[in-house]
Design a protein around this nucleic acid. Structure first.
Lengths: 133, 133
DNA sequence: TCAATTATGGACTTTATGTGCCCATAATAA
DNA sequence: TTATTATGGGCACATAAAGTCCATAATTGA
């Protein structure tokens, strides 16, 4: 039961882009260097963010990534779901058909965490950060 | 990012024991049959609960497991920590030394979930359950 | 005391997933 | 056209979860 490193990379990348000059493109090379991760691996993660509609990419020389217009409303939870999926953290598997009380409690617990993460907007957190560009 | 099946088995076992006649011992065989899991695997999980001080075991014929005296105060979170450990769900690993804002947000989120689980006492949940002994 | 029963612990296999790399392909700019 | 950059498939490695097998210890009952 751990958040993946991929989620960590995704969150850091999004916050970095939030502090980066808007509309300016930045390549996966530079993003990868900052986080000390291989560009090939990071690019897989970025592709997921593209498909989730959070960032957009441009191929070719001087290409790269940048945030999409609606980025100010993107929350930590959105990023996490884009990388890890949105499935419940707890599967009961027993009690086929009938509802499981354990499951209900666990799902409620998970919702407490998600409600919090839903309110952590990238734009708000980025303001609090000191990013060295 | 998933809770393990082991945690599921542990929670179900604890709730079953809570609905079982107190002081009466029940063997791993019967507990395993209920949950459709192999007795050898379940016994590893039960040993963790014993070491965490939640249940006690007796070897030999007619031996088995039962709750310890303080069981009414045991929460879901206690059981989860006994099985999965108490480490944070999120490790930043970057920003050696300096604090990471992403890490702080994630830890806060985790605490929201844990605060909820801390208040879900086995005794309370067991009351709401219909267990067929 | 002996045999049956039950938990404990070590070592192992299997399976799944995360992490990371390599290379071919597509798209774009100079 | 060539250099650059993203995309995608496939492969390899590491790690952890899930589960098995067997030896050992403890306890009960005959």
């Amino acid at each position: 039961m751990k958040f993946s490193k991929a989620t960590n990379y995704a969150l850091h990348t999004m916050l970095f882009l939030a502090a980066f000059p808007p509309n300016k493109l930045i390549g996966v090379q530079q993003l990868a260097e900052r986080q000390e991760v291989s560009p090939t691996y990071l690019s897989k993660i970025l592709t997921k963010l593209v498909k989730a509609g959070m960032i957009e990419s441009t191929s070719g020389a001087n290409g790269g990534y940048r945030l999409k217009r609606n980025w100010e409303e993107i929350s930590f939870l959105d990023v996490i779901h884009a990388i890890e999926g949105s499935a419940s953290l707890f599967d009961c598997e027993m009690n086929h058909g009938s509802e499981c009380l354990v499951q209900k409690v666990m799902v409620s617990a998970e919702e407490k965490m998600e409600d919090f993460l839903k309110n952590q907007k990238l734009s708000e957190i980025a303001k609090k950060m000191t990013v060295v560009l």
